[in-house]
Amino acid sequence: MSTQEANRRLVRRLVMGAVLMFGFGFAMVPLYDVFCKVTGLNGKITNTGPVAVAPADTSRSVKVRLIAVHNEGMPWEFSPKDGVLRVNPGEMKQTAFMATNPTGRRMVAQAVPSVAPAEAAEYLHKVNCFCFEQQPLMAGESVEMPLLFVIDKKLPEHIRSLTLSYTLFDISPEVSAADQTNKEQRL
């Protein structure tokens, strides 16, 4: 094989390697999500929907701290109804978050939850949560947003307290853009 042929073959392989690695960079995005889901890392909550009703474990209780966070530029008033809750594992607990839109325009918000320690995330089941849906509010309007959750009885013993935090994002621009497209499509 001549040097030139060898060069050409080698270059082809190396370029292919580079292209594959470029793809791998993007593949890390879904891989990361899958990894977090499988291992329950990162405090991302994936357990939603109804759970089988079972008697609560009254022998221990867990301190659940509720936190409301505004993302940048989010003018809403946003706070938990209860700052701290004592919950027995297996017990269905109801609470709520309050939101007020103090601005003079209609806005749409999306809450994104996170659990700390991350290890506890897979034991927190949300039966009903305002974070499942987008929350529109007219100018000056207020709303009480319900949250219904159960802590799994399999929660490891050493976790005595956990924090459930919600960050509120302003998604009005995205929503209005989507509405616009829908309208155009209907026309």
């Binding site: 690695m21 470029f22 960079g25």
Partner: peptide, 10 residues
């Protein structure tokens, strides 16, 4: 070759 494309990706 292995990592510069990842930087380009990010």
């Amino acid at each position: 070759i292995a990592v510069m494309p990842v930087l380009a990706g990010v």
